[in-house]
Design a protein around this nucleic acid. Structure first.
Length: 499
DNA sequence: AAAAAAC
């Protein structure tokens, strides 16, 4: 049985096996088991597997296995020694950093030098590291090209090139840069493309950059959908002005764990983070208008659990792996079904369960209809969602007395902002087990458990917004600071206009 | 009325 094979059974270097074991990674996930033999033989691969199922190591282990380390025999005589032998490109800086960290962890003891090259940071450290010599470079396109054109980075000895989130990298916005980078690498290189989403047109385009690629899809037989079954999906019809209140209630009811709130614009991300902070939640924003330092600080605070709500644009939609994320809220509908899949895939990773909630207002509606159709999610006709709908409080399982009430205006006008909730996996409507406030359960983890996610009883954790003495505020540059509480209840009935 | 990615 494939599932019972260990990494050592695949002939992986003992140092890598040991490094993986140190992180409780002993058995390959399906996408890894399927790609390893092909990738280790040097073949080109188009690898597709659902979010959170181990794609990074699917290409990371072959890279580390195939690269010649300074500690290996023959390195001294290697042509282009010290110049990158492998290149991995990602669509966002934070993802590039994360991929490099994952590779670095797996490379421990192997002596391989891994460098992250990305924008928004000083040139000197990156240039210095390149001059000192590296074996693997991970980065974002702009800075990679920049350093290459300035002569600091040579890709002439990259025998391996990987596009992470490949469909995004081959999309219009990235394609020219990606093409430029690939053209800097040698013709005979091994090319590997990975993503959870691989439209047929992208596969066709991808083939023009590859040599007889093997298309590998790790998808279980009993499962035709693209969403991760462990992510329980909800949809709320909402008025724009009620969204913040709805979000606050979900955040209060959700139990312990981390949440990512996605918006479609940078401005809304900043605003929602502010609104949550005003209500006493520990929230931080991350989006492209922030300085790189603020971006990474926000993500770091989130990973630490110092901030338990990350309000993000789609900069955080792809690849970002934070184990303790139990809830994803689409405050605004994503642009397309691919983005929807990637966003909700920030939870339910590596065997864990998660909850995804999508708010749909008039502005979102055409996007939602499109997503629902493309993914065949089985949501009833949108018109149906306007009629008879369960009460928001019962849907959110929040005792009314503890949370205050919604503004009278929305109650009388629209029967409470959220008019409908549907379990889109086809189970009976109403509250499924646990519901929105459920502490998402953890499956068998491949990595060590975070203490933050352990030991929480379902729905028992106190609401974060319960009248703290001080409250956190997220400023527009992403910094989180403490300040004296303003007067007034933590749960005001204040709503925010979308604008 | 999108985001992201170099300076």
């Amino acid at each position: 049985m494939e599932e019972t094979r260990t990494f050592a059974d695949f002939g992986i270097h003992a140092d890598i096996v040991a490094a993986l074991e140190a992180h409780k990674i002993t058995h390959p996930f399906p996408i890894q088991a399927m790609t390893l033999p092909v990738a280790l033989d040097g073949h080109d691969i188009i690898g597709q597997a659902k979010t959170g199922t181990g794609k990074t190591l699917g290409f990371g282990i072959p890279i580390l296995q195939r690269v010649t380390s300074p500690t290996d025999d023959g390195f001294a005589t290697l042509e282009g020694a010290g110049k990158p032998q492998a290149l991995a490109v990602a669509p966002t800086r934070e993802l590039a950093v994360q991929v490099a960290q994952d590779l670095t962890r797996a490379a421990a003891g192997r002596g391989i030098r891994i460098l992250t090259v990305y924008g928004g940071r000083a040139y000197e450290p990156q240039i210095d590291a390149l001059n000192a010599g590296i074996e693997v470079v991970v980065g974002t396109p702009g800075r990679l090209i920049d350093l290459a054109e300035k002569g600091h980075l040579s890709l002439a000895h990259c025998r391996i090139a990987v596009l992470d989130e490949a469909d995004e990298m081959l999309d219009l916005g990235f394609l020219p840069d990606v093409e430029k980078l690939l053209n800097m690498t040698p013709a005979g290189r091994q090319t590997m493309l990975f993503s959870a989403t691989m439209p047929g047109a992208v596969v066709a385009l991808a083939r023009s950059y590859m040599t007889q690629p093997t298309h590998i899809r790790a998808i279980s037989e009993d499962d035709s959908g693209q969403t991760v079954a462990a992510v329980e999906q909800f949809v709320f019809r909402a008025h724009a002005m009620d969204k913040v209140e709805m979000l606050a209630r979900i955040m209060q009811a959700r139990g312990r764990g981390l949440s990512i709130v996605f918006t479609r614009t940078k401005r809304t991300a900043a605003k929602v983070a502010d609104e949550l902070a005003d209500r006493g939640f520990a929230a931080a924003a991350i989006h492209g208008d922030l300085g790189q330092g603020a971006r990474e600080q926000a993500l770091r605070a989130f990973r630490n659990g110092k901030v338990d709500i990350l309000v993000a644009t789609d900069v955080a939609a792809r690849g970002i792996d934070v184990e303790a994320v139990t809830h994803v809220v689409n405050f605004q509908c994503p642009e397309d079904e691919k983005t929807y899949l990637h966003r909700i895939g920030r939870t339910g990773r590596a065997g864990a369960t998660g909850v995804a909630v999508t708010f749909v207002d008039w502005d979102d509606l055409h996007r939602w209809v499109q997503i629902n159709k493309a993914l065949d999610l089985g949501i009833p006709d949108p018109e149906e969602t306007y009629s008879s709908s369960p009460h928001l409080f019962s849907q959110l399982d929040i005792p009314e007395g503890t949370t205050g009430s919604l503004p009278r205006s929305s109650r009388t006008r629209a029967g409470l902002g959220a008019e409908h909730v549907e379990d889109i996996e086809g189970k009976p409507a109403g509250r499924p087990k646990g519901g929105l406030g459920n502490q998402a359960g953890r499956g068998q983890r491949k990595t060590g458990n975070r203490s933050a996610s352990g030991g929480a009883n379902k729905g028992e954790s106190a609401p974060r917004a319960a009248k703290p003495r001080t409250e956190r505020t997220t400023t527009t540059d992403g910094k989180v600071r403490r300040r004296r509480r303003r007067g007034g209840a933590a749960n005001s009935s204040k709503t925010a206009a979308e604008s």
